[in-house]
């Protein structure tokens, strides 16, 4: 399987460990992610200003992927929603598509709408499949509880993102379950991290973030696992900035999914850039490694097979 990796603007410069760990994990699962330097911003930041300026960048990105015959693999939720939204708007509105295609034509690009936009969770859960992932795991967590924050723009509006049930999402929990991790049921799971308000109303943005941090801690989370890159920056950077240095040990540490599955696939913490998360220290890493146990599922299936043969 081959995909064009869409990193967006935040990941390469602010969370490079997210895409690095993702590439390492997918390589283990025989999926190649091609880096395309020509990709530009997804358009999301301009949405408050001008809807058509919001659509054009994603259209160009899709046209580039189409020209290379690749589907787009997205990490960031906001990029994902922008690409999905643009694709739908342009597929429905031929007039707008033709008008914007004239701009792309200057560079010899053309958007047809044939490209598929895949969120990494969909690729892992559906395209690769948990059935294929489970046997490749060398380890499984014996006892780990995390709070997932799904991020708004992967779930809603459901008719745009076409991801899964926006009220009761299951994919992330399932993907954590196969690693032996229990995903807590907590209030902030499907809610907003406050990122969209950062720089516009910092006070409100911080309030929304703090609400989630407190909620996840109260639910008993060892770690918070944000899916979206904006959520990641809120929890991993802003949370730390909001905390007094003397209180750093109260910070809720952040891990991303490829880092968790990467450990279970036998990859080293350094390969997964775990230490590059601002909220993670060596003690966290040692603790995580100590929690890794043999992949129990394998034994179970073996046992079952044995009973059959007997």
């Amino acid at each position: 399987m081959n995909y064009a990796l869409f990193e967006g603007c935040n990941i390469p410069v602010r969370i490079p460990q997210y895409s690095r760990s993702m590439k390492a994990v997918l390589k283990k699962l025989d999926v190649t992610l091609e880096t395309i330097d020509d990709f530009n911003c997804c358009g999301y930041p301009a949405r408050n200003i001008d809807e058509s300026a919001y659509l054009l960048p994603s259209m160009r990105n899709m046209a580039i992927a189409e020209a290379r015959g690749l589907d787009i693999f997205v990490i960031c939720n906001c990029c994902f929603a922008s690409l999905q939204k643009t694709k739908q708007v342009l597929n429905a509105n031929t007039q707008l598509r033709n008008k914007l295609n004239l701009i792309l034509a200057k560079e010899g690009l053309n958007f047809t709408g044939s490209v598929s936009i895949k969120h990494f969770l969909t690729v892992l859960h559906d395209d690769i499949g948990t059935n294929k992932i489970t046997p490749s795991l060398s380890w499984k967590f014996t006892k780990l509880s995390v709070a997932v924050i799904q991020g708004c723009h992967i779930l809603r509006p459901r008719e745009v993102t076409l991801f899964e049930d926006s009220f009761v999402p299951r994919i992330t929990d399932k993907l954590l379950e196969i690693l032996g991790i229990s995903s807590l049921d907590w209030r902030g799971k499907l809610e907003c991290c406050g990122a969209a308000l950062a720089g516009i109303n910092n006070e409100l943005s911080h309030k929304l973030l703090q609400e989630k941090v407190t909620g996840a801690k109260a639910a008993g989370a060892d770690y918070i696992v944000p899916i979206c890159s904006y959520c990641h920056l809120q929890f991993d950077t802003t949370q730390k900035e909001m905390t007094e240095p003397t209180e750093y040990d109260t910070i809720l540490p952040v891990l991303v999914y490829p880092q968790l599955i990467g450990l279970c696939l036998g990859l080293e913490p350094d390969q997964l850039g775990i230490k590059e998360n601002n909220t993670i220290n060596q003690a966290h890493i040692d603790g995580l490694l100590a929690l890794l146990g043999p992949p129990v599922d394998k034994k179970k299936t073996k046992l079952k097979k044995k009973t059959v043969t007997c």
Binding site: P45, A46, R47, N48, A198, G199, S205, L233
Partner: peptide
């Protein structure tokens, strides 16, 4: 600029 009230401000705040 009115554009200040957009998500372009997110990395600035960060």
């Amino acid at each position: 600029e009115a554009t200040l009230l957009s998500h372009f401000s997110f990395p600035l705040a960060l």
